[in-house]
């Protein structure tokens, strides 16, 4: 799913380049929200290291 974040960032950059800046900002905002979700997911999964 992290590849989707990169894909959305790529789309946001392309949209900005094509002068679709409102849509570009929206895609960026969605990506940031999803990134926070994945940070929470990976930060709260059980640790694989020995403590």
């Amino acid at each position: 799913m992290i590849s989707l974040l990169f894909a959305l960032m790529t789309i946001a950059i392309v949209l900005a380049w094509r002068d679709r800046w409102r849509l570009s900002y929206f895609v960026f905002a969605v990506t940031l929200a999803m990134s926070i979700y994945w940070l929470d997911f990976h930060a709260t999964t059980p640790l694989t290291i020995k403590l």
């Binding site: 950059i13 900005a16 380049w17 960026f28 990134s35 930060a43």
Partner: peptide, 22 residues
């Protein structure tokens, strides 16, 4: 996964810079 999320953040910084360039 956390390393990849750091790369996502770097691309996000790059996105802001791209907007400044365009």
């Amino acid at each position: 996964p956390l390393c990849l999320l750091q790369r996502v953040a770097l691309v996000g910084v790059g996105y802001g810079l791209c907007l400044n360039l365009i």
